[in-house]
């Protein structure tokens, strides 16, 4: 037992000697933000670490909102240099940034991400419109029997929603409210679907808030199932239940084309080409934001931006395309690249 105590003491001393706490310098890039951009950002980080001789950047997956919170907290080594986002930065976030001294921000749009509704290959391909999606999944819809008010969603099967759809139970597995994919789904599918209904379109004109509430509330009676943040899990569940439909990012469809298929939305199936051509309606742009004040004090930031905006990375044939990023059109890519490399600043409010 005595020997044990000596060993413990030795360990303590070793640990104490090892831990010179020193947060004053950082020799690697620190990236935070969206979990949708995470796979792309990490891929570039790894390539950058291999190719340029800098340390590999640290990439934290915090979600878009959480990323901006950290990013806008201030200037200095303890704050991140780059924030990934699956939406553009909000005005309120820019204001927080400005208050904390983060006044020089460079916005880089990197490409698109598609949101797909997919089901098992054992079932036929679904042909949905955004209106169908809204009518099937909103918790309250305008009375389908022609009444004036809103009623609780009565539909049980897809056929009830639209006679052209198959006669199977509505069962949709999707991301939980904390997810950025869910936000994008609400905005791109549900809101747009609601706008295709005349009474709701009028509501938007008169009372925007009430409209948002209708368009953004999803059924809680079992037709929609929050399936957790793990999209692989949704894919697995689709395989065991051919009647279910899953909502997730395009890259998971791309990786599992042998098992699942994407539903056509407004007549367009989600493929690399249709999303790139912006024909597929459920797609959103992805961004990263650079803190210009850190350029110079943290090594490698311009080189990282350069690597990211290289055609071998974000181009249609690049390694990010293999990971499921849908590239920007050629002209836009060129202009974004030039602006990013020149560190063109975002105008502050």
């Amino acid at each position: 037992m005595k020997r044990f105590f000596y060993a413990m003491t030795a360990l303590c001393i070793l640990a104490a000697a090892q831990a010179p706490v020193n947060a004053s310098a950082r020799d690697y890039i620190y990236i935070v933000g969206s979990s949708t951009v995470y796979p792309f950002s990490t891929t570039v980080a790894e390539q950058f670490g291999k190719a340029y001789g800098f340390k590999t950047p640290k990439v934290e997956s915090t979600g878009t909102g959480g990323g901006f919170k950290l990013f806008c907290a201030g200037v200095g080594v303890e704050h991140p240099d780059i924030s990934n986002a699956s939406r553009a930065i909000k005005k309120s976030e820019l204001e927080t940034c400005a208050q904390n001294g983060v006044k020089e921000i460079v916005e880089v749009k990197i490409g698109f991400d598609g949101i797909v509704l997919a089901n098992s290959k054992k079932a036929p391909v679904m042909q949905l419109s955004r209106k169908d999606i809204f009518m099937a999944l909103a918790s309250e819809i305008p009375d389908p029997k022609g009444g004036a008010g809103m009623v609780k969603n009565p539909f049980k099967t897809w056929k009830d929603v639209n006679p052209a759809l198959p006669d199977v139970k509505i069962e949709v597995l999707g991301p939980p409210p904390t997810s950025g994919t869910r936000d994008a789904f609400l905005e791109l599918a549900m809101e747009e679907g609601a706008l295709e209904i005349a009474s709701l379109k009028d509501l938007k004109k008169t009372d925007e808030k009430a409209f948002k509430k209708v368009a953004h509330s999803i059924r809680e009676d079992g037709a929609w199932i929050d399936a957790g943040e793990n999209d692989n899990l949704i894919v697995q569940k689709l395989l065991t239940n051919p009647n279910a439909v899953g909502v997730f990012g395009f890259s998971f469809l791309d990786q599992n084309t042998d098992k699942i298929q994407g539903a056509a939305v407004n007549g367009t199936t989600p493929t690399f080409e249709t999303i790139a051509a912006q024909k597929y309606p459920l797609s959103r742009p992805l961004f990263f934001y650079v803190k210009k004040a850190h350029v110079g004090s943290i090594p490698g930031i311009p080189e990282f931006v350069k690597e990211f905006t290289e055609d071998k990375a974000w181009g249609p044939q690049g390694y990010l395309a293999d990971k499921g990023l849908i590239p920007l059109p050629d002209a836009e890519r060129a202009s974004v690249r030039d602006a990013a490399r020149a560190m063109k600043l975002l105008s502050m409010p």
Partner: peptide, 28 residues
């Protein structure tokens, strides 16, 4: 976090085994 370099001390950025499992489980 995504950390490629192997941590060499107590103040290097690092991740731990269960977190690694979580991150991989979420990869496409």
């Amino acid at each position: 976090a995504f950390i490629v370099d192997i941590p060499r001390g107590f103040t290097d950025p690092a991740t731990v085994l269960p977190v690694q499992i979580y991150l991989w489980a979420d990869s496409a």
